[in-house]
Design a protein around this nucleic acid. Structure first.
Length: 117
DNA sequence: TAAGTGACGGAGG
DNA sequence: GCCTCCGCCACTT
């Protein structure tokens, strides 16, 4: 059996993912940035893979920057993630999600709205 | 120590 | 929108 790696940044990543509101999604890179780990998107993916069930991290709300689910279409993981997202009213079409509609935009959304342009 | 791997991202075609 | 290439980084072999 292989021991599971314990990178201290994992907790930071899990905590950030927990902030994503229901019905919204965020990209791996976005989570990395918010967690104070810019450029470490791949680390986010790994962290989610090691996330203990006891923390109940909404891993399904994290997708790649292209707005797609990062599992092969049809795989067990893919179907599970798609199902969970649809449960939250997020539209998944061909493994794709319209970031324009469903991407989480913390605080900044309000600013952009006020600025008008 | 070097090479391979992957739940990534961005630029280009 | 799709694909390829390259840079990136933690971890494995």
């Amino acid at each position: 059996m292989s021991d599971k790696p314990e990178n201290p940044n994992y907790k930071r990543i899990w905590a950030t993912v927990l902030l994503i509101p229901k019905g919204k999604v965020a990209s791996y890179g976005q989570i990395a940035d918010l967690a104070g780990l810019p450029g470490k998107a791949r680390l986010v993916g790994r962290a989610l893979g090691f996330a203990p069930k006891s923390i109940k991290v909404p891993w399904h709300r994290v997708i790649n920057s292209q707005g797609k689910i990062s599992f092969p279409i049809g795989s067990e993981h893919f179907e599970q993630q798609k199902g969970l997202l649809q449960t939250e009213q997020v539209v998944v079409l061909n493994g794709r999600i319209k970031l324009k509609e469903f991407q989480w935009q913390p605080d900044l959304s309000e600013l952009l709205f006020k600025l008008e342009y």
